[in-house]
Amino acid sequence: MTGVELLNWARGPGLQIALVVFIVGVAIRFIEMWLLGKSPDFAEARGSAAAGGWRTLFTRSLPMPGALKRAPLVFLGGYVFHIGFFITFLFYAPHILFLRAVTGFSWPALPAYLIDVIGLVSIAALVAVLVHRLTDPVRRFLSRTGDYVAWAATFLPLLTGYFAYHRLVTDYTTMLALHVLSFELLLVLIPLTKLMHTFTFAVSRWYNGAIAGRKGVKV
């Protein structure tokens, strides 16, 4: 298969397949979780559950006091690659064109050289996070195959994107095709791995904050 054929497949049937798997998978996992419901709480509330829920949804993006000192790499690596990933994904001009074609919305892009730097920094952060996962006793102990699969699925779009941008390794067309395919792999793996937290983290944070908020505790 030539690079162009690969790119045409990735931009056509590949994208359709990936999107279908992604939507079906995410819908199943989200709905099967959502339908389980939560029993009503008869204890008299001290504070507002909803206020606590919404509050924690946002405040939990900041580390708990003291946490940065205890595990700096997890937090810094985590911040850098999450923020970096989303900036490169959402603010690189060609990506915006893709999102515009899919969603109908568009917004201003960041200059390509900036995206280049951010992408490289994100790649470095992901490598650091992987090394940490392989060497830190707790993370090594907790990790399952799926954690490494999820890591690779996050890493590959950044790496192939970087290679394509700099015309590295192979010709641009093939690398662009691999880049699109790696994004499709990521889409497919979101509902199949812990990457599902992309969606469920909001539910989790909300409940954590709501359970505490009801008791008048800010968490």
């Binding site: 056509g12 939507i23 709905i31 064109l97």
Partner: peptide
């Protein structure tokens, strides 16, 4: 169409996927 745009329309596939996903999710959830 710009190079990054999908080569084929996605809305039909996405719509079908939503229907299937919601139905399957509801079945598993119930």
């Amino acid at each position: 169409a710009p190079l990054p745009a999908p080569r084929a329309p996605l809305s039909a596939a996405a719509g079908a996927a939503i229907a299937v996903g919601v139905a399957a999710g509801a079945a598993v959830g119930l």
